[in-house]
């Protein structure tokens, strides 16, 4: 009994120590960035046109442009040139990578959810938003959301809609580690369609050679905002990110980037631009 108590006491002390360490760290990540002269960004390379590789292997995309903007801001704020190191992540590991400090910021087409907010510090205003739809062969007879009930759909591991949609439509989901595998499974006929993000589906369909036979089947629903995130505890870095996000909406940077990357303009970005321009 006493041993148990002592252990419990030890755990409490450890917990307190961690809590103290957490608060004492304000600005710690920013200091680290300054010292290294480098910010490490967790980012996607499997999500054209938000993050992908060009034929030469260079990582590019809408989110990469925004990270470049962060780099400019950090260089100005810290008074020394800051480089960017990009760590490619997938949906299933991105939150953990940031949480463990493998990177200083996370910008990886991630939807803002309360569960994620518990673990990482998500920046407001949100920089983008997308909803859920189904992409399938043109000949597939699905017209409304109820038509997918009980069917097999492909998706990727870690996508936030998996559990909700699996329950709501009694789906059989084939979730693969990467988007490429998931799409290959769709083309092989392993599933009747792909449960996916509308922004991703729209950009895929621009590649007629591979996706000429496919189309977006259902109206987008459950549109949710995306969040850029940093670790909990560094309010200075968080403030730089918040200012950047406000600025992007104010100046219409994301509106321009949508144009640059050939993305169908989203209402979210338009509305945010109107809202912040007025301020």
């Amino acid at each position: 009994m006493t041993a148990v108590k002592r252990m419990a006491g030890g755990a409490v002390v450890l917990g307190l120590a961690l809590a103290v360490a957490g608060t004492a760290q304000a600005g710690a990540v920013l200091d680290k960035i300054k010292e290294r002269g480098e910010i490490v960004a967790c980012i996607k390379v499997d999500y054209r046109p938000f993050g992908f590789r060009d034929p030469s292997g260079t990582m590019i995309g809408l989110e990469h442009d925004l990270v470049d903007d962060i780099q400019v801001r950090l260089t100005a704020a810290l008074g020394k040139p800051i480089k960017v190191q990009r760590i490619p992540v997938i949906a299933a590991n991105r939150v953990q990578f940031l949480e463990q400090g493998k990177c200083d910021m996370l910008m990886a087409t991630m939807t803002d959810t309360p569960e994620r907010r518990r673990l990482i510090h998500i920046v407001e205003p949100n920089y983008y938003a997308s909803g859920i739809t189904v992409m399938a062969k043109k000949s597939t007879p699905i017209k409304k959301w109820d038509d997918i009930r009980g069917q097999t759909l492909c998706t990727s591991q870690g996508a936030f809609w998996n559990k909700e949609y699996e329950r709501k439509y009694e789906l059989k989901l084939l979730a693969f580690a990467g988007i490429a595998e998931s799409e290959q499974a769709l083309r092989d006929g392993r599933c009747i369609g792909s449960l996916t993000d509308d922004s991703l589906a729209a950009s895929r369909l621009t590649d007629k050679e591979i996706w000429g036979d496919y189309e977006i089947k259902l109206p987008t629903q459950d549109t949710k905002p995306w969040g850029l995130a940093v670790q909990h505890g560094d309010n200075e870095l968080f403030k730089i990110m918040t200012d950047a996000s406000i600025d992007w909406h104010k100046t219409g940077k994301i509106v321009e980037l949508e144009k640059k990357w050939g993305i169908v303009p989203t209402d979210f970005v338009k509305d945010m631009h109107e809202k912040y321009k007025a301020k």
């Binding site: 949906a91 299933a92 939150v95 569960e115 994620r116 518990r118 673990l119 591991q157 870690g158 996508a159 936030f160 998996n162 559990k163 989901l173 084939l174 979730a175 693969f176 580690a177 595998e181 499974a185």
Partner: peptide
């Protein structure tokens, strides 16, 4: 890896949902 819902796959799904 090929989406067979065995123990590791389900665990992966659960930890993605619940973090």
């Amino acid at each position: 890896a090929i989406a067979v819902p065995e123990a590791l796959y389900v665990a992966n799904q659960l930890w993605s949902d619940n973090l």
